[in-house]
Each structure stands twice: as C-alpha cells, then as structure tokens.
Amino acid sequence: MALRMATRRLGSKLLPRFSSTSVLHSHATSFGFKEIPEEEKSRMVGNVFSNVASNYDLMNDLMSAGLHRLWKDRLVSKLNPFPGMKHLDVAGGTGDVAFRILETLNSVKSRATQDSLDDNLHEETQIFVCDINPKMLNVGQKRALERGLGEDKSLIWVEGDAEALNYKDNSMDGYTIAFGIRNVTHIEKVLAEAYRVLKRGGRFLCLELSHVEVPVFKELYDYYSFSIIPAVGEVVAGDRDSYQYLVESIRRFPSQDTFASMIAAAGFQKVEYENLVGGVVAIHSGLKI
C-alpha cells in the first residue's frame, strides 16, 4: 500500500519536470550551452566526433583517470549477457562495450560446461555495433583487429541513426548506449526506437555522464570539468571546442530522475538508475514487457 502511494507521489513529482524537458526538445535544441536549430545539432555533433575520433581513447582515459573502463564493466555486468543473445550497442563505435560483452560471453561459455546446447547458441550470438559516425566505427574495427576479434562473426558493425534504427520490432534482447544519448537531438525518439526493437523481457541500459549533487564534490567536479578538461583537450587533442562542448552537454542533459521518468514514459518498466562516483555517471536501466 505504502509502496503504491509512494509511486503516486513520485509519479506526480516527476511529471512536471518531464514535461519541461519535452518543451526543451521541441524546436530549438541545445548544443552545449548554445541554443541551435534542431537540424544543426546532428551535423555539429558529427563534427565533434570526427574531430576527436583519433584521440578518443586516450582522452577518455585522461579525463576519467581510467575510470571509464570500470564504468563500462559495470554496465556489462548489469546487462548480464547470455549465450545466443542479440544485442544492439548504439553509439558504441569504438567497440568498448561490445568487446566487453563478447569477453563476458566467452568466459561464461567456458564456465558453463553442463549444457551442451550452449555451444550452438554461442554461434548465434550477434552484437550489432551501431554508430552514426563512420570515423568512430573505423576506430572500433581497427581495435577489433588488434584484439584478434576481427574474424569474430558475432560482431557486426553498422552505420546507423539511433533515432531511426534499421531493425525489426521485437528483434533484440539487449540495448545499450554508453556516452551517446547526450549527443542525440531527440532523446524521446531514441528511447521509443529502443523500446520498439527490444523483445519482451529485453532490457535497455544507458551509461551516461550525469549530475553530481554531493555538495563539496560538486564544486570540485565543476571546476575540474570547466577548467581542466578543455585545457587538457587543447593540449592533447588540439581541440578545445570539442571538449568544451562535452562538458556543457553534460550539464544540459536531464537529471537522473528526469531521465528515468523519460524512460518510463517510453514504456519501459522497472526503471532504475545507479549513480557511480556520486553521480558523475549514472547507469539507467529499463525492462520491456
């Protein structure tokens, strides 16, 4: 009873905030702190990622002090991959998440000897890596070769738009988007597409830089992101603007609760989020029934 009442309360609390963001995403949209026409955003974001693609991994390591590896590990462990799954990793051009899923599956396979069916199932595993930016996909494919996964039939590299996916309804077991949903023009469209392609029982997981609310840590984090990251970007990648966009776009992204209510509005159930490092990143998850 108490739970249901809490639901109502939360529901009414979340709704107004949700509606305010839907206004935000109606005509003008944000590019960092700048307001730009909707049509511009995907082109400008595309430019950013074309610029940073070559130094992407190095910069990720520098900016997060290597923590992004742990965050991605956590994402995959929450996903709980299983042999024979059809998975779609959106905005995963560099293959970070896809490689981790494959590694998890391979270790699961070696562990689970009791079921002989597993072997056949493993052949059926398909991980679609979808990215709108061909340069990022190139980075990923190169890395797959380096890791000896170049011949792996499970990995499928696809150029595609998260807002208009090229897959059938109810065709995927899992959907992940890591550090990508912040950069799309219409978050609602992406969520609706995710809901569409997932099977019943399929899960949506989103790893995204989010909002820090811990008092002193928040100030430190703000200083770090506005003063240090653009400077590092300039020195290492020779591109201050792209990293300025990065930190600004994080601030423009809906808060954890708002984003969770957006996921729920797309039809997902059991919507949860987990803050990591006090909210620097959050993992949202939803279940399609």
């Binding site: 939360l10 996921i263 989020y273």
Partner: peptide
Amino acid sequence: FPFLLPHHQNIDNNTCRFSSTSEIPQSSPH
C-alpha cells in the same frame, strides 16, 4: 514481491559506498 523488493534495494545501497540505486516506479498516467 512486496516482501522481497525493499530488501534488494537495501542491499544494493549497501554494496558500494559510492553508488546508490533508486527505483523509479511507473509514472502511470501516460
């Protein structure tokens, strides 16, 4: 589930100090 769910949540909250889990129930009136 009413007995089990609150439990899971507590445990999740306790597992690591730097992470917190919250469950957002369905906002039903959509």
